[in-house]
Amino acid sequence: MQLDSSPTRSDQVVGRRGPDEATILLDMASGQYFTLDEVGGRIWELCDGSKTVREIAAVLVQEYEAAPEQIEADLVALLDELYSDGLVHAAIPPDHADQPPRAARRRAQ
């Protein structure tokens, strides 16, 4: 997932944060369940299509005590997983539209 992509939750997925910290996701297309930890759930909430990966990272840096580089790396890793599982889509900015997202490149190798 590129830093200037804007991830959006798939409309095939229903999700809800539990009462403690986990978020449960149900993929209607595959019938699979997924759970995210507290930070993953926050990232899921932020994937509304209005923010780039870089902007989501900036929000997380404000909310969590960790090195910005680490937060960004963890964020990209999780988004790559969500993307490859079909749980998020990524709008690619026009000037990068000829490049497939990182997760797609990885699968193609």
């Binding site: 409309d11 095939q12 229903v14 809800r16 910290e21 986990a22 449960i24 149900l26």
Partner: peptide, 28 residues
């Protein structure tokens, strides 16, 4: 509560999206 919600998730029949979301919300 999180474990309880996971145990209840199989109650969801993944049909119409909005109704399924409401079902999940009620369980949560």
């Amino acid at each position: 509560g999180d474990d309880a919600l996971l145990h209840l998730a199989p109650n969801l029949l993944m049909t119409e999206r909005d109704a399924t979301q409401r079902h999940l919300d009620v369980l949560a």
